[in-house]
Amino acid sequence: MSNLEPIIEVKNLVKVFHSRGRTITAVDDVSFDVMEGEIFGMIGPNGAGKSTTFSMLTTLVKPSGGSIKVAGFDVYKQDDKIRPLIGIVPQKLSLYPDLTARENLELMGRLYDVPKDVMNEKIEYYLKLVGLSSHADRFTGGFSGGMKQRLSVICAVLHEPQIIFWDEPSTGLDPQTRQSIWKLAKKFNGEGKTLVFTTHYMEEADNLCDRVAVMNLGKMVALDSPESLKEKTGSSNLEETFINLTGEEVRD
């Protein structure tokens, strides 16, 4: 799927947090490119710096050092140019429980300045796509985890973003919902959208991603296609590869 044009360029990225007199380097000199049209995965144990990197890529948190360019725009100075081009599926599903599915979608559509008639068309289309048409006018507070996840995804794509950032797409989902989420991801990718994932699940990375960045303790320890990673570490599956690269110790 991917072209060879980088759509995201990350150079020497650093993020330092100061908390109660302690300095924590969450992301330590990380550089990588994401190519246009590829599915790019970031995997790593807890505390590896995935989420922090994700927040910086999505303009939510400013880097302490280094640079990020998304679609040619600098996250420091041009975050207002970047935001309309990206869609974000946050880890917390982030839906208003006291609004209906349709109202949640309409809110997102309006905030992204999608013209009203286009928006209504897209809402119908996407609700049908994820099988939520009959639940459109129900409050999302009563939705199941899988329904929330599907709604959360389509909230992020109403404005047809070039890049979709997706934080832990299938954490806590049943196998059926996970399959449908992956199918959705592949469909968006097939439409030419670039996808950037974070995940704990090796199976997910193996199944979906063109390339995987393995992060550990704030550093990037490997970046390659799932096949090459397995080959390099002499492992039969990505889970083994992951343990090989990041160690067996349990993280907190």
Binding site: L60, D80, K92, S94, Y112
Partner: peptide, 14 residues
């Protein structure tokens, strides 16, 4: 608590 503010802040809205 439910993460909605983060989603709002990620949109082009200042």
């Amino acid at each position: 608590e439910d993460g909605t503010i983060v989603r709002i802040l990620m949109t082009p809205v200042s």
